[in-house]
Design a protein around this nucleic acid. Structure first.
Length: 782
RNA sequence: GCGCGAGUGGCGAAAUGGUAGACGCGCUGGCUUCAGGUGCCAGUGUUCGCAAGAACGUGCGGGUUCAAGUCCCGCCUCGCGCACCA
């Protein structure tokens, strides 16, 4: 299965590569006789449709469906072997109805909930964004600086699945690109440590912090609370007016700082003293409490214990504000108290009471044990992963099927009322204004509460389009079903996606969400697998002159033009032959003309065979060439080495050409056999030419279904090989030998070689290594 | 800063520790052709040599091995990811 496209305009070179490669895999397994489901659909909701609507006054629905029609025609022309009976479009009510159904199932299980918090806000798109959609502080879509806004929004509780999402990555090892696995692991970001409760003077409740280094508790010399957290404001509330004023001023500047500035690496630490003290639970020491923006409000508990001697950031802060530094781990490096350089490595505990003399790992365990005994802390873990914010204040998406009633609160829409269809865009103001355009559809918004019958309003937000793509692969089992989201029989028959193909751009977002959905559906008993995509192939990008193609850059290569000039087969083959699929292709390095020439050369082989009458016994060398081609072709395809597989078909063409011109001739049955396997092999890359060849060779049925010939193992055995003679590992001579040559014979052959004799000269022979039938290496002294 | 990946001819690239450069582009020469931006054949890592052959050669420096593009250690460069995550 290929990642489904977003229908913005026609297909481009990137699509051409992705679908060529996906099609090779699909056609290969069909050729091997498997029942292959190779579906396609459209990720049809989303902002571009809406933006086009705003900019050019179009109906987003019309714009989307027009683009889908155009893309579909191009795909058909491009010979994509999709199952056109299973097409889905996520903007069809029959599709998004099940988005809503799934949302309500999640809601029932407490996996969909609403909360108020500081969320990422794109001032340009005028909508909230998920953490995953913020890249280095910028909106993933429009590169605008993202700001924070306190809003009540819908979330999916991905964090409930954090452990499984992380641990199950192990089962994908070797089947997904390791790069993607690493990125997912980093994103989920589990760290083990301890939560520790610190009493605070003049406060009833202790505050809790998370630390990965409970062993350094004796080295804690102050505490830091995230300046923008509720806790900081609360702590400072009772302070003197001077402290309060300073805090208020600081908080103002923190709020003004954009994420971009905040993230810049060598930014000086800032902060203010809160006028409060916490008590170290292990040694009873009084620790001054500070507020700073280097502690994040939404990670851990938004507060930390600061151990400057063994944490770089705490050290920086301590130096800046002249706070004490106490070394508690002797790492063998210079004392951080003196150098002002924090040490984080392993070592022996000092100045730490009962922990003294222990090594880091033991001390961590011991510290946790002590905390547990005293009831002031325990072993715990924290994740970087946050819950998935799914509400969007935009029009072109799935309406959230919730009704808000003043009396009954959140009321889910009844099952039989689904789908909650999007109102027509006519008469709605789609321009971004910070609240959903759906709010303006009064007939649509105002409804009776399903519970009490009183007047109520629909939720006006729409779902993130990543909800649509989190389960679409399951919908292909029954794309038009009104009975269920996806057919359980289909799940049994087809199961998880055996092979997924798409760009690495979705390494985190889409793949993580789809994995999350699959696990939830597994727990609901709706699917019997926990990972949606058994194998994943990331294709690279198609570039021009080293950079991404774009109209504004003036280096845009149009797929339509390329197809016009070279033909579909040549472009598909060029994409496959250019290099390893995961590498980028620079279009300037690639030659579709050459590929065309190769296709013509292959075609002529079939032509020559078709014009000769069969005669003679099958030529054994040609048969060997054909069967070793089959053997190598199959392993290369199965290992995604499409470029090498194409090279092997070129070798076969060369061998057949030679046989026709200066060997056994085109009428030899072995040449016909070779030409037929050649057509089948080529059918994965160049279906039109291959089909023509196949018909030239006298077949009526489609080449795509012909099936490779069984490999005759005995034809893979070479009866002579080139043996090499080395002296001290350097090649000195070669000879053709029989594969079953004895070690003695091979050695004699080598020793009699003039070249070898010369290389040995007067030196003394130390050792002779023989690997019959391929190699003799003579080690000499001196 | 941390993590991951990659550095091989003029170019895109091949190579279970055992012939480095398969296959293709480009280039050179020959044949075919009225002609050719076609087709076919041959050559093509660098240096020396008429040749036979030799020396050198997979980013750099070491190491393991009879044998290293491949394994180990240290560096350099590029790309990607993460980046005050406690």
């Amino acid at each position: 299965m290929d990642m489904f496209p977003y229908p913005s305009g026609d297909l481009h070179m990137g699509h051409a590569e992705a679908y060529a490669l996906g099609d090779v895999v699909s056609r290969y397994w069909v050729q091997r006789g498997f029942n292959v489901l190779h579906p396609i659909g459209w990720d049809a909701f989303g902002l571009p449709a809406e933006n086009a609507a705003i900019k050019r006054g179009l109906d987003p629905r019309q714009w989307t469906y027009d683009n889908i029609d155009q893309q579909r025609k191009s795909m058909e022309n491009y010979a994509c072997s999709f199952d056109w009976d299973r097409v889905l479009r996520t903007c069809d009510p029959i599709y998004y109805r099940w988005n809503q159904w799934l949302f309500l199932e999640f809601y029932k299980k407490g996996l969909a909930y609403r909360k108020n918090s500081n969320v990422n806000w794109c001032p340009s798109c005028q909508t909230v964004l998920a953490n995953e959609q913020v890249v280095a502080g910028l909106c993933e879509r429009c590169d605008t600086e993202v700001t924070k806004k306190a809003l009540t929004q819908w979330y999916f509780k991905v964090t409930d699945y954090a452990d499984r999402l992380l641990d199950d990555l192990d089962t994908l090892e070797g089947k997904w690109p390791s790069k993607v696995l690493t990125m997912q692991r980093n994103w989920i970001g589990r760290s083990y440590g301890a939560s520790v409760r610190f009493e605070v003077e003049n406060r009833d409740e202790p505050i809790e912090v998370f630390t990965t280094r409970p062993d350094t508790l004796y080295g804690a010399t102050f505490m830091v609370v995230a300046a923008d957290s509720d806790l900081a404001s609360e702590l400072v509330a009772d302070a003197d007016s001077d402290t309060k004023a300073k805090f208020a001023e600081y908080l103002e500047t923190v709020k003004k700082t954009s994420d971009i500035d905040r993230l810049s690496t060598d930014r000086e630490k800032t902060g203010v003293f809160l006028g409060r003290y916490a008590i170290n639970p292990l040694n009873g020491e009084k620790l001054p409490m500070w507020a700073s923006d280097y502690v994040l409000a939404d990670y851990g508990t938004g507060a930390i214990m600061a151990v400057p001697a063994h944490d770089e950031r705490d050290m920086e802060f301590a130096v800046k504000f002249d706070l004490p530094i106490r070394t508690v781990v002797d790492t063998g490096e210079e004392d951080p108290q003196v150098t002002k350089i924090a040490t984080a490595g392993d070592g022996v505990l000092v100045n730490s009471g009962p922990l003294d003399g222990l090594r880091k790992e033991q001390a961590i365990a011991k510290a946790i044990e002590v905390l547990q005994q005293r009831g002031t802390g325990e072993k715990t873990k924290t994740f970087r992963l946050r819950d998935w914010l799914i509400s969007r204040q935009r029009y072109w998406g799935t309406p959230i099927p919730i009704i808000h009633c003043a009396k009954c609160g959140e009321v889910p829409v009844e099952q039989d009322q689904l789908p909650v269809e999007l109102p027509d865009s006519q008469g709605l103001d789609l321009a971004p204004k910070g609240t959903s355009p759906l709010g303006g559809a009064e007939d649509w918004v105002n409804v009776d509460c399903p519970k009490c019958g009183g007047s109520a309003k629909r939720d006006t937000d729409t779902m993130d389009t990543f909800v649509d793509s989190s389960w679409y692969f399951l919908r292909f089992f029954s794309p038009n079903s009104e009975q269920f989201a996806f057919d359980p029989d289909g799940v049994k028959q087809w199961g998880a996606v055996d092979q997924y193909v798409g760009g690495v751009t979705h390494a985190i977002l889409h793949l993580l969400y789809a994995r999350f959905f699959t696990k939830v559906l597994f727990d609901m008993g709706m699917v019997d697998f926990e990972e949606p995509f058994s194998r994943l192939l990331n294709q690279g990008m198609v570039l021009m002159d080293g950079s991404a193609m774009s109209k504004s850059r003036g280096n845009l290569v149009k797929l339509g033009d390329q197809l016009e000039e070279h033909g579909v087969d040549a472009i598909r083959l060029t994409m496959s032959f250019a290099g390893p699929p995961e590498d980028d292709i620079d279009w300037k390095d690639v030659s579709p003309q050459a590929t065309s020439k190769f296709l013509a050369r292959a075609w002529r082989v079939a032509k020559d065979v078709s014009e000769s009458s069969a005669e003679g016994e099958p030529d054994i060398d040609v048969r060997k060439a054909t069967h070793s081609f089959l053997n190598e072709f199959e392993t290369n395809i199965e290992n995604f080495k499409f470029n090498v597989a194409v090279a092997k078909t070129m070798e076969l063409v060369n061998a057949l050409r030679k046989a026709i011109d200066s060997g056994c001739g085109a009428g030899n049955p072995a040449v016909r056999e070779g030409a037929e396997e050649l057509a089948k092999g080529l059918s994965l890359f160049a279906p039109y030419v291959a089909e023509d060849m196949w018909h030239l060779l006298g077949h009526e049925s489609p080449v795509a279904l012909a099936g490779f010939r069984d490999i005759e193992k005995e034809l893979l055995v070479q009866d002579s090989v080139t043996a090499v003679a080395q002296v001290n590992g350097k090649l000195r001579d070669k000879f053709e030998v029989s594969v079953d040559i004895s070690e003695k014979e091979l050695e004699a052959l080598a020793m009699n070689s003039e070249n070898v004799k010369r290389a040995i000269g007067d030196s003394e022979i130390a050792k002779i290594i023989i690997r019959a039938p391929k190699l003799v290496n003579i080690a000499v002294k001196g």
